[in-house]
Design a protein around this nucleic acid. Structure first.
Lengths: 394, 394
DNA sequence: CACCTAGGTTCCATAGTGGAAATAATGGCG
DNA sequence: CGCCATTATTTCCACTATGGAACCTAGGTG
């Protein structure tokens, strides 16, 4: 694969072992050579042989010892010279497609957002989506560094990272080979993925869950979304992306969801449900943030709704932890402020449903905007790029 | 194959790659050399080099082509000569320790039970447990083949496969290094494990879940137990074994459990709970099997109790599948007959709580006796033996 | 019976590995 | 300040497991 002008790519196309070294550095942040050798069960000699070409090629850089892990400052011996990824060695595009528009970001190899752009869809048909993604990609790449791969995420099912087999928001009734359509339109390799999987991947490699080999992601917003990483591998089944937890019963006294489930996750936690519940009580239409503000100030209608939602959220979090045995959950989505306003209630509910002898559940509340979701798509592209099969030896 | 006298152990102590070959054969049953090569990404040449010494050593044997997978009988080319494990190449002891006795089995490398024995505990203190395990091991090994490793399982928490850190049934108040105590007493390597993890391991490598890389095990009996395998690796955390699912709420109208949870898994599904519910209604004490028989014959008291239990079980199974994304659940334990008597109700409840677009959940009901649990302990020993670090090169 | 296909074996050049020994960089100590 | 212990990293080399090519084996087919 030739990347036209200035090649920041390694001349050596990354053999299995050197790829493993690069991945280790990417995922574990700055690490010394000796530490990498230990983690990968390689000898120090092999490590030198593998790592130094990567430094020469510009993919890795030596950084100053950042005083390492605290607690063992004054030890004898030569100091470590940690290696880190040079994040600008490669750049990626991530694009999140919604029913109305495309949000896209340009990121580094570390999924740091360099630039961001948004453009409304001219239509929901595949051709319009392809055109819009082409446009935003064009805007982001103009005059910038070459792009190694493009990631696209959307709500729905995606097969083999290329074919969209279900996309309710776009009203696509049949399979669309979006990956190949976009690859042709952009002249770049493209990876398509479910939006929640993409977000989960981003948290796994680059987010607060970096370094954790087991965790769950829970999103609340228009609905309830769910992603799971076990043993350092994301759980990817065809059933992911159908909102498996959306109708999990949480409160036998709760309101109904549009499908008729009483007190299910959607009925208790989604923004529309909460707005509806408060609006009905107040006899006027209120926004989600207004609901939370009113609850925080003790409004007699909003407060109990939010408290019930917090309790339901705690119950859901506890169930996730109990069933999957994760010790960390990343909570995000447009409705995440609920967890902050009702944090005490949430924590109490989690404790109530957890065995007291279990390790405490680590809960990470992560604010999200559209760039955050688009960054998830970029993370998918980064993973695909880093893990892709070696080119069949030319 | 004659075992008795001649040492069945390999002279070659299994290098990394040949260990992988042996493991592949152990786990995937009879497999042709070419198939192994494909699975392990090895060349055919390497495969010959690796596999044939294993055949020579007696660990693997060539078997007749069992007409392979149906559907492709008449194909051209040389027929495959599949390899299989010689299960008698090694033997193992599995012992399950309860609060009252020790059940032990002698098994092959495939966890097939060769002999079985039971002995009551003379006391619950560590010394008595060690003595009883020593006795049953002695009985099982007398005059038989040499034992490669001993596995011991019990209800409770076990650290590093050696130290029992909690064992409510044995009323041990402090950590007991049971593994090393037994290793000294037996003169054999010993692996200790939580009983549910052990059972899960057995299902994973040798049971109905063989070949599945993601599944859950659910046991109903005195309580509700739970084990999980994801990405071909068992989920092993300190929290396993504390009955995480025992108090999962399943029926807001259900009875109370001893801890005061209304309609939790224990209250709805445990044998004592079901017996209690039916006994109260009938004004007489009934056994578990009697409850099920009465329900099957339409008894007006037992039938609704069992139906409610079946519904709760279905809800629990659906939750397991929804949260962990497994597509297969092995259901076992002394109370498992519930699932057979109330199968229709269970299936209906599963469907009700699953998104209709998901893949159907595969449910495997497995009858269990004490040998079954002891076999789990043996499976732990087999795993430890097969996966153990190579002896530090003599 | 010649030919086709696919499984399995033999053999060899070589890439990649661990290990020993060397070198580098640091703190402690007399 | 010089020496030593300690740890990180590099250099170098013997060795071994690997892939690949060529070959043999064991059926089918026309």
């Amino acid at each position: 694969m030739d990347t036209t002008s200035a090649p920041p790519t390694q001349p050596t196309p990354l053999t299995g072992a050197s790829r493993a070294v690069a991945l280790e550095v990417l995922l574990r942040g700055p690490v010394s050579r000796s530490e990498i050798a230990r983690r990968l069960s390689l000898s120090a000699g092999s490590l030198t042989r593998l790592a130094n070409p990567l430094v020469d090629s510009g993919l890795l850089v030596e950084v100053d010892a950042e005083h390492g892990p605290p607690g063992q400052e004054a030890r004898a011996g030569r100091r470590t010279r940690p290696l880190d990824i040079n994040p600008t060695a490669h750049h990626f595009i991530g694009a999140k497609v919604t029913g109305d528009d495309v949000h896209a970001v340009l990121t580094t190899l570390r999924a740091e957002v360099v630039a961001s752009v948004r453009k409304p869809l001219s239509g929901r048909d595949p051709a319009s989506v392809v055109a819009t993604v082409r446009d935003v990609t064009g805007e982001l790449t103009a005059g910038g560094p070459p792009i190694s791969r493009v990631g696209v995420s959307l709500g729905g099912r995606v097969a083999h990272h290329t074919t969209v087999t279900a996309a309710p928001f776009l009203e696509w009734s049949e399979d669309v080979p979006l990956g190949s359509l976009l690859a042709d339109a952009l002249g770049l390799p493209v990876t398509v993925d479910n939006d929640l999987l993409a977000l989960t991947r981003a948290e796994h490699w680059f987010g607060t869950a970096r370094g954790h080999d087991r965790f769950a992601v829970l999103t609340i917003g228009a609905g309830v979304g769910y992603g799971l990483v076990m043993h350092d591998t994301i759980v990817d089944t065809p059933d992911v992306g159908v909102g498996l937890l959306g109708h999990c019963p949480l409160d036998p006294m709760g309101p109904l969801c549009p499908s008729g489930h009483r007190g299910c996750a959607t009925a208790m936690l989604s923004r529309p449900s909460i707005c509806a519940a408060v609006s009905v009580g107040l006899r006027r239409s209120v926004t989600y943030d207004e609901c939370l503000d009113l609850a925080a100030s003790g409004d007699p209608v909003a407060a109990p709704v939010i408290t019930a939602a917090g309790r339901a959220l705690g119950r859901l979090l506890a169930a996730v932890a109990n069933f999957t045995l994760v010790q960390k959950i990343v909570l995000t989505g447009e409705g995440v402020r609920l967890a902050e306003v009702a944090r005490t209630t949430v924590d109490e509910a989690v404790r109530a449903d957890r065995d007291p002898s279990t390790a405490p559940l680590e809960l990470d509340v992560q604010h999200s905007d559209f760039a955050y979701w688009a960054r998830g798509a970029a993370a998918t592209a980064i993973q695909a790029y880093v893990l892709e099969e070696e080119p069949a030896a030319g």
